[in-house]
Amino acid sequence: MRELLKTRVAEMLREGRVDGVVGLIESHGEPLPYLFTADDTAALERISTGELQGRLAELIPGVVRYPLGKILTAVARKHPDKRFGVMCRACDERVVFGLFQNLQLDPDKVEILGLPCKEELARACSCPAPAPRSAIVDQPSREAWDRADLERIDAMALDERFAFWVEELGRCIKCYGCRNACPVCFCDVCTLQDDGLVKKGEIPAELPAFQLTRAWHMVGRCVDCGLCQEACPMDIPIRTIYRKVRSIVGELFDYFPGERDGGKSPLEQLGDGSFPIQ
């Protein structure tokens, strides 16, 4: 896979189809986010899919993922005229489509290099859809969404559920890591820092105002990549909250953010249509 990825990236850059490719490079013994460009072909030798080697593979399970879509957005904002490739697992791909839908990235300027995930990884991620649509290789279709986390909580009685969340969210140290890592959080001014909504300067982050505020904001946005939970130092199952939000939006509006055929955004379905997003 790595070799193929390398060939494809080299090709895109050589042919001038793109000016840079956002991906991962093996550097200082770990895979790190990097922008590959035509003028530094040597870097391509170290391109990485995020798989860990040797002793690190034993320490850290799964693959290394970074918010590549968010990084691409930052680079593209600074260089609006340039064209980009971006390495994507299926989750990153949903991110990129989500960013298209929210007008943060220009679909005409982005080319996706999709990497399919192995079955076991998909299971470990409890991934809703592990097969990228723009994969660079043929892949078997996979159904992997493990909803065990949602089902477990839905099965709880209300007060039990409440107690569960109070306990879990009580560990929050308000690092804002969930927001910072979220590739579809792109607002310049963040409601989580609004004095009127969430009290400042205390941990745990105000319960449940902080988490609920963030949950509202994930409506129609969360692509279920799981990067938020990976960033949470306190192992709080926050992804489950946003998954719930995502599944409600899916049921009500038949809309799944980040999926190409995900229907119309709820915002476009509400109201009298006099406020189109464009």
Binding site: P33, I60, Y66, I71, I173, G177
Partner: peptide, 25 residues
């Protein structure tokens, strides 16, 4: 994170056995 020589932000190292992809505020 360095973009055109400018420090635009930081990310936690995902592979680090110390912080395992997390940071504090």
């Amino acid at each position: 994170q360095v973009l055109d020589g400018e420090l635009i932000g930081v990310l936690p190292s995902k592979a680090s056995p110390i912080n395992e992809g997390s940071l504090c505020i």
